Amino acid sequence: MNINKTLLTLAITLPMTFNALAGQAEIDTIEQAAGTLNISALETIAQEVSGYDKALAYYRLGLSENLSGQTEPAIVAIDQAIELLEQLNSNSVDDVEIKALLAQVYGYKIALEPLKGMYYGPKSNEVLAQANALDPNNPRVQLVTGISKFSTPAIFGGDSKEAYQAFDKAITAFSTDSNSNYHWGFAEAYTWRGLTYSKAGEQEKAKQDWQLALNVNPEYNWAKILLEQNQ
């Protein structure tokens, strides 16, 4: 199983036309485009939105381009997301959502360019620690914490048990997050927690979590793929 090649592959049909959306509608549209690796739609969305939403669109664009084998454009998109988020973070030093996304984007920068890990790793850890200090119950803070703990080698601080705890905490927090206007990542949290079960050899619990991800989002393709691969 190649986790990197299936990460965040959501099978949701993207509405091909949209106007100037606000709040959660923008987040939903970005996530829908990312679900089908719809690069052209994400490029369009990134030009139509601003602020946090623009940074999220560039992050999802970078993911989609990389998963489609377009590494260089992915690096450009991630760099754009980093630049935007760093500016936003400088202007809103107590915004936990900006810090959580920035930590995740720094982490993905390392995935794209591992030799830059010595630079971006500490930056990701620092801003994620700040996010945890601001709101340790934020679901995306815990989701990103879990991804970091799961993906980082043990020698550099990775820990599957701590990853499980973070994903479990994220799932609990997502139950009251639907009106946050930043609501993304719920199905991901179940899917990642399932991966911690799978890594521990508990395949039935893993499959239960992947099914729970589909209960949250019946079209979530990553969970579908994992279930199919582990029948």
Rank of each mutant, 00 (worst) to 15 (best):
A133S: 13
E65F: 01
R193A: 05
G35H: 03
L195T: 09
Q211S: 15
A46P: 08
Y182N: 09
L37H: 08
P153M: 08
R193Y: 02
G51Q: 03
A131N: 11
Y182R: 03
K207H: 02
L14M: 08
A166F: 00
S64F: 05
F186D: 13
I3V: 13
F186Y: 15
G185L: 07
A166T: 13
K161F: 09
G62S: 13
K5V: 11
T152N: 06
T176Q: 07
V76N: 11
L134E: 06
G194Q: 06
A55E: 03
Y108M: 07
A74Q: 03
L101E: 09
Q80P: 03
E97T: 14
P73M: 06
G23K: 04
Y106T: 11
Y119H: 08
L112W: 00
T17K: 13
Y119W: 00
Q203E: 13
K161N: 14
A200D: 14
N19E: 14
K99N: 11
L102F: 08
K149E: 10
K54C: 09
G107P: 11
L226R: 08
L63C: 03
Q80I: 09
E65R: 04
A11S: 14
K207N: 08
E86P: 03
S40T: 12
N137V: 10
N217I: 03
L10H: 10
Q47T: 15
L226D: 02
Q165G: 14
R140S: 09
A189G: 11
P122G: 08
N179F: 04
L112R: 03
G121A: 09
Y197V: 06
G121P: 00
N215T: 15
Y58E: 04
F18Y: 11
N181T: 13
D79A: 12
A133H: 06
K116W: 01
L128F: 04
G107T: 09
G23N: 11
Y197Q: 02
A189S: 15
N2C: 05
Q211Y: 09
E126F: 11
S148P: 00
L88T: 05
